[in-house]
């Protein structure tokens, strides 16, 4: 005799976000550095950004979140959307 088990995960309220298609070149593109203010996150991002800019001719745009434990504000996200094509972020401890 079979048993039916109800799923414990259920539906989600948000459609999965699709990653944007990769750019063919970073030349002339503005790369956004989104520093979540974790200790040393800025050091890593700035070094990475400078290296990419030197190698590809990309420009850099920088923003910070108020605190690493809360998501970036709509204001920060909107201003980045207007200025940059690529974002580097996600540094943890």
């Amino acid at each position: 005799m079979t048993t039916e088990i109800l799923r414990p995960d259920g539906e989600t309220g948000a459609a999965p976000v699709q990653l944007a298609a990769p750019l063919a070149s970073l030349a002339g593109v503005t790369i956004g550095l989104l520093d979540n203010t974790k200790p040393n996150a800025g050091v890593l991002l700035d070094r990475l950004g400078a290296t990419l800019a030197a190698r590809t001719g990309a420009r850099l745009g920088r923003r910070e979140t108020k605190n690493a434990a809360v998501a970036a504000s709509d204001q920060v996200l909107e201003s980045m959307t207007e200025e940059v094509r690529v974002v580097l972020t996600g540094s943890a401890d």
């Binding site: 039916e4 088990i5 539906e11």
Partner: peptide, 15 residues
């Protein structure tokens, strides 16, 4: 509502 999962039985091993 999501589709249920059909198990052969309710033994600990199946679960």
């Amino acid at each position: 509502m999501s589709e249920p999962i059909i198990l052969g039985d309710e033994t600990p091993e199946s679960l």
